[in-house]
Write a protein that binds this DNA or RNA. Sequence first.
DNA 1: TTGAAAGCGGTACCAT
DNA 2: ATGGTACCGCTTTCAA
Lengths: 343, 343
Amino acid sequence: MTIERATLHEVAAAAGVSLASASRALTGGSASVAMVQKVRRAARRVGYVPDATARSLRLGGTRQVLFAVDDIGNLNYVAMLRAIEREFADTGIRLSVTTTGRDVEQTVALVQSMNMGVGDALIISPLRVSPSLRRALSELIVPVVVIGSLQGNVPVDMVRVDSGHAVQLAVEHLQSLGRRRIGFVNGPLNTNPGVSRRHGYLAAMEAAGIAVDGCFMEIATDFTIKAGRAAGQRILDRCGEMGLDAIVGGNDLLAVGIINACLAAGLRVPHDIAVTGVDDTEYAASYNPSITTVSLQSAERGRLAAQLLLARFEDPTRPPETATVMPSLVARSSTQSGDVNVD
Amino acid sequence: MTIERATLHEVAAAAGVSLASASRALTGGSASVAMVQKVRRAARRVGYVPDATARSLRLGGTRQVLFAVDDIGNLNYVAMLRAIEREFADTGIRLSVTTTGRDVEQTVALVQSMNMGVGDALIISPLRVSPSLRRALSELIVPVVVIGSLQGNVPVDMVRVDSGHAVQLAVEHLQSLGRRRIGFVNGPLNTNPGVSRRHGYLAAMEAAGIAVDGCFMEIATDFTIKAGRAAGQRILDRCGEMGLDAIVGGNDLLAVGIINACLAAGLRVPHDIAVTGVDDTEYAASYNPSITTVSLQSAERGRLAAQLLLARFEDPTRPPETATVMPSLVARSSTQSGDVNVD
DNA sequence: TTGAAAGCGGTACCAT
DNA sequence: ATGGTACCGCTTTCAA
């Protein structure tokens, strides 16, 4: 029961060798078999555990990468996380997740803290991007990969997906099914996805030659189930009698909330009203009815982000690269009558 | 566009003062107003950012706490996480999450790495507990709080809940509703929750004087939706014709999977068969039908864990404490016909 | 108040 | 192959 941790000094002393030899014997430098044995034994005897902080200081780098997301309660980010972890599996890199939450300035603070050497690199998927965040990101000394878009041209590696196009696919799918009065429950407009998904909705409606009734659009206070339900209730109250026959949710969480609201209002999904989501998380696949959604390839985006980072570790001078993935529709029961939980 | 970070040395040089003075001026030691001004200005000029690693080495501690969970895709853990974050909000502690995953030895490795000073403390909620994990935990030099149970008597702070009793509550609820042939889809038996929930089920059935038909019990390969669906299918195939009128799921994820299986089999929930979960995550509340579940007070457990840790930071010598919370039933639509999504 | 210097725990270069 | 030592960047005695 050691209460104080032993240092390498003590190991060296216990083994009767020099500090340098002890270090080499343990980390695998040139050392004789006898030396290695002696030191190893001594290390075990005194209960030696190397100090990560000291090592990091000397080596100039923690072997830690941070993954920052707004809401880890969103399975979308969990999918990214898992993919990143897999990619880092044999690299000796420790991935740790931090949630940044609603406040952009909190995110900015996190990004800035990276320059203090809290981690060797950052993978970040920000919902809201402010000028201050853009600045913080461009002032970053450590490598960073952004999953999402940044608006300005910050010279960093990025992984993108056109989520506006994703909404467009959803709308077109609904139209092809004969739905005409298609509402849209979006997430907050002060987020990047909120803005681009709005564009997608408007573009699709316009392309179909359908006049967009402003009251068919509703904005949830957040990309969450709860907010989706509240917003769903509002849009139903406001234009339920106007023949609304479909609602596009800004993401899967919103879609779940919207369906909640529909069911509570006595509407059948999809018979009376069709609902779609975006993200293709497990929520969508396992809900009742299973939810038609548009995959944003979260796992693939996570994988690409990790690879981009690894490539930059290899060659820090390579020019910033942007990888892009394509959204793809996943049709399920919330838009087409048919089997429940087709998967 | 600084490519190299400036050190305190350079700040001192730029300000024409000593290293010591620069340090004091920046961190708030005794320094004259003029000195502070001079140094601050110099720091800004050279773009100085303190190095967290060096500071940690000198101060003997990163201000970082690790939260380790098996599956961050389970909202149960997300609830704990949020509560912990809230508790740490004003403490200057950075919380970072690491997922340990299926393999116990991976968890053991993580725990051991704590002794290398990767973090100042650990909050861990392990699903599977092996002797090696128990040993690793008791050999830990840094403070640790375990959310869950450990079996042996490892002298660490703990937050517990009797999840066996939770299942018991679920079974009793079903019985009070007139259900008699109650099946149980459990998680893996090599997990602590799996074992205690099994006891809970058996105890409740016995207390009701109902002979437990072994074939009414099924074990999912994991506490996930997918595994729940597969296990649900199995139990339905095996004894659907035996008048099964309720299934208790080992947790909410399993319950969702079970309902998926029931619906796919053409069964109506709760009319033909009632289903319950455990954890009271948002899944349960927002599913269709809303799922009756037993709250394990995850948020409260997270809060308690954080407080226990804070208390130990205050007084490292205090005896290990175990906080306990009580499970409580949350009745919803998956067991009682009635409104959809009563919440 | 200020400066010089001793570490915090390792790693790696330099001779030997 | 081994030992001596400088040093990673910062904080904190100790004197002046």
